[in-house]
């Protein structure tokens, strides 16, 4: 076995996994606060990446202006979706709400294709191109720097949710909506903010992933990988999303490199199937007590 090759593949996979962890975090934020499983998260990522393409490519802005604008656009989209399509579903069965997010995903794919066409496109490159070596192992610079930016946001998020007022409100709402409401927390606002913050994380990851692999209206399928991440980690566990994100990213890349691209999805979904059978609430998720 060629250990150097394995090391390089693993490194690329782990870096990719870091971005999965970020998207997973966005997903978990939304789920924890609102109990909505967001099947449209991949499409929100895609939308932000196309915004970046429009700003940096079409309008020829500096990528460092376009990136925050695109991420902002993606998070606004999340907020708007929550306000006009998710809020009316408050109190409906979780299955109905999930289906609404599936519908939203379909709308976003159509809109993107309508505006930017169906053909795959490349994002203008904006990350440093100097090869990165860790020891002897080579890591593609796009992936390395993408990982660093993603990791930075991830750390900011973790600190924010641990220490800020907003973070406390979010965690309070997650653990008991009624109690949070009676303590004067504006639960509706928390719901909205959760969507905004969750979409923000997803949007940044969306631009970074698209920068390494290109962009097309099918890009949202990455949402399926994210789904695997959050189920394996546990839907309501931030730690779970981080660990599972890194692991699934690594597994996908290694399976793709050694077995072929067609094995990427089956490999991760096999892990998912095992988890569903043996630890249905994920590695770190909480299992709620059922009542009659």
């Amino acid at each position: 076995m060629d250990w150097l090759f394995f090391g390089e593949i693993s490194l690329a996979g782990l870096a990719m996994g870091g971005l999965y962890a970020l998207i997973g975090l966005g997903f978990v934020i939304i789920y924890k606060a609102t109990r909505v499983i967001n099947f449209a998260i991949g499409e929100i990522m895609m939308f932000a990446a196309y915004l970046f393409l429009a700003f940096a490519g079409g309008m020829e802005m500096s990528p460092w202006v376009a990136l925050p604008l695109a991420v902002l656009g993606g998070s606004l989209l999340g907020g708007v979706i929550e306000k006009i399509m998710i809020r009316p579903m408050l109190g409906e069965s979780s299955i109905s709400v999930v289906m609404v997010t599936i519908g939203i995903a379909s709308i976003l794919v159509g809109v993107v294709e309508m505006i930017w066409g169906a053909d795959p496109q490349l994002l203008p490159s904006f990350l440093p191109r100097k090869p990165v070596f860790i020891g002897e192992m080579y890591l593609a610079p796009k992936i390395a720097y993408g990982f660093l930016i993603g990791a930075a946001l991830l750390i900011v998020y973790l600190l924010y949710f641990r220490f800020s007022r907003g973070g406390v409100a979010l965690r309070a709402t997650a653990s008991d909506q009624a109690a949070a409401y009676s303590m004067g927390i504006n639960v509706r606002r928390v719901f909205n903010l959760a969507w905004v913050f969750g979409s923000l994380a997803a949007s940044l990851a969306g631009v970074l992933v698209a920068a390494t692999g290109g962009l097309s209206p099918q890009f949202g399928a990455i949402g399926l990988s994210v789904l695997v991440v959050v189920i394996v980690g546990g839907l309501d566990s931030i730690v779970g999303a981080l660990i599972a994100g890194v692991f699934i990213g690594w597994l996908e890349t290694v399976a793709g490199a050694y077995l072929g691209g067609e094995y990427r999805m089956p490999a991760t979904f096999a892990v998912l199937a095992v988890i569903l059978v043996f630890r249905p609430y994920g590695l770190f998720g909480t299992h709620e007590i059922e009542r009659v």
């Binding site: 399509m85 289906m99 609404v100 519908g103 939203i104 995903a105 794919v109 159509g110 294709e113």
Partner: peptide, 19 residues
């Protein structure tokens, strides 16, 4: 525009009927 339009209509029907 036909194929993206179809995606939008399907999505909007799902969301619209559910709401």
């Amino acid at each position: 525009f036909m194929s993206p339009m179809l995606e939008i209509i399907f999505g909007a029907l799902i969301v619209g009927f559910l709401i």
